[in-house]
Simulated scan of single mutants.
Amino acid sequence: MASSITKFAHLQIPLEDVAKATNNFHHDNIIGHGGFGPAYKGQLLLSGKLINIAARRLVRKHGEGDIEFWTEISALSDLKHSNLVSIIGFCNEKDEKIIITTYEANGSLKEHLNSPNLTWTQRLRISVGVARALAYLYYDEGRNYGVIHRNINTSTILLDENWEPKLSGFEISIKQAVNRMDKVIFSEPIGTIGYMDPEIEKTKGVTHKSDIYAFGVVLFEILCGRRAFIKNEANRFLTKLAKRHYESETMHDIIQADIRNQMSQFQISLGSLKKYSNTAYYCLKEDRAHRPHILDIVDELENALEKALRFQPLTENFVRHSLFLLLFSCMFNFISCGRICLF
């Protein structure tokens, strides 16, 4: 553990500074709860600049959590991608263990699944962003190892002020040699109910295709506007419900209501929906070998987004800009005609 502290010494932030940034961990500053512990928002003065932060504070019930703490710091210090949350530093003093990352203004995707304000194209952009993050984790050319996340769900997908996704939650991630990404890593079934790869029980371990399964669940959550698991409901598990409707060609019945209205109102290409739902469905294949490659997933989702953008309704700003250009053009032509007449 001492070697870890030395290796990441440049990221250490004094407890006094973190406490000040979060108003002494005031309950009004809590922005979420996870398996690691509560997360607080705050403003930290760093190198003379005030920045918005999220501070995840480890809850230590029986002294556990050290491995997860250092696993996350190790992962985030090595990984740099526009769709991953960025580490600012950590605090490890007075029995406190806190990970400080950038603050994402729109919280987690879980909070917005059924929001009428999240359009179909925005949902597609979020899906594409997460897929790109996974492709980076598995096959970035700058590293000789890949990272299996093991905690893909709508709570670990954060959204910044522009609704761009930032994947977080690396405390149980595993590093694996790039040429062994398909090999099973023996592991206890760890994760969130509703997202667990059914092959874990059979193979007694995970591969990166376990993440692909969980991502398929997320894709259907985004499309249907509901969570992966809802306790005390007849259709508790979204996977079973979504697969049944996909196979019966009745997906339209379970699509989130506002998305369905957008598709009807703006005549959004059905090709976009078809590509998206196909991708989500094949991610949920029981046999890992039949789940798609992450690069194919990226291509399919990007294509779905491209198809949707062709049918995107005109925004108010676009209409105003177009009217301005039209008015300017008319004035220019009028002046030009006047000059011709004068001469």
Rank of each mutant, 00 (worst) to 15 (best):
V217N: 05
D253N: 11
G191D: 00
Y213V: 04
T239Q: 05
K274W: 14
M251R: 02
L295F: 15
I230F: 09
I254E: 12
P292F: 15
L223W: 01
Q265H: 07
M181G: 02
E199C: 00
D287P: 08
L295M: 15
E161T: 08
E233A: 08
T239S: 06
L167R: 03
N232Y: 10
N151V: 02
W163S: 04
K285M: 12
D296H: 05
K274T: 15
L219Q: 05
Y195N: 09
P292H: 09
G169L: 10
K231Q: 14
K285W: 06
Q262E: 13
L241H: 03
G205K: 00
L270K: 10
K202G: 08
T192V: 11
Y276L: 01
S187Q: 06
K166Y: 08
L284H: 03
F229K: 13
K175G: 08
K240W: 03
R236D: 12
T154W: 02
I255D: 09
L284F: 02
L238Q: 11
E164A: 13
K275F: 12
R150A: 02
K204C: 15
D182N: 10
Q256C: 01
G271N: 05
K240Y: 04
D253E: 14
I255P: 10
S155F: 07
G169Y: 04
I193Y: 12
N153T: 04
F186A: 13
E171R: 01
H290W: 11
I172E: 05
E249Q: 12
L167P: 03
R180M: 15
I152G: 00
H252L: 14
W163N: 09
P292N: 11
Q262N: 04
I157R: 00
S155A: 13
G191E: 04
S173R: 06
A214I: 12
F170G: 01
K183Y: 07
N261M: 04
E201C: 14
G225I: 03
W163Q: 04
L223A: 14
E199N: 00
P198A: 10
A289D: 14
T192Y: 01
I148Y: 00
I230C: 12
P198Y: 03
A214T: 10
I200L: 08
D160T: 04
I268K: 03
F220R: 00
L219K: 09
R291H: 11
L158P: 10
E171I: 05
L219F: 05
I212M: 03
T192L: 04
E221V: 07
G216E: 10
G205C: 02
K275M: 14
M196F: 08
I259N: 00
T279W: 04
K166T: 11
E188Y: 04
D197Y: 00
A289F: 10
H290I: 09
S269E: 12
L223S: 07
Y195I: 03
P165N: 05
I259G: 01
I152R: 00
H149P: 08
S277H: 10
L241R: 07
F266M: 08
K240L: 06
I148A: 01
G191N: 02
P189W: 07
L158R: 01
A280E: 10
E286C: 04
K285P: 03
R236F: 13
I259Y: 01
S210I: 02
Q265G: 02
V206M: 00
F237Y: 09
N278K: 02
E247I: 02
S210D: 03
S210L: 00
D182E: 14
I230M: 15
S248H: 10
V217E: 07
N179A: 12
K202E: 11
T203V: 14
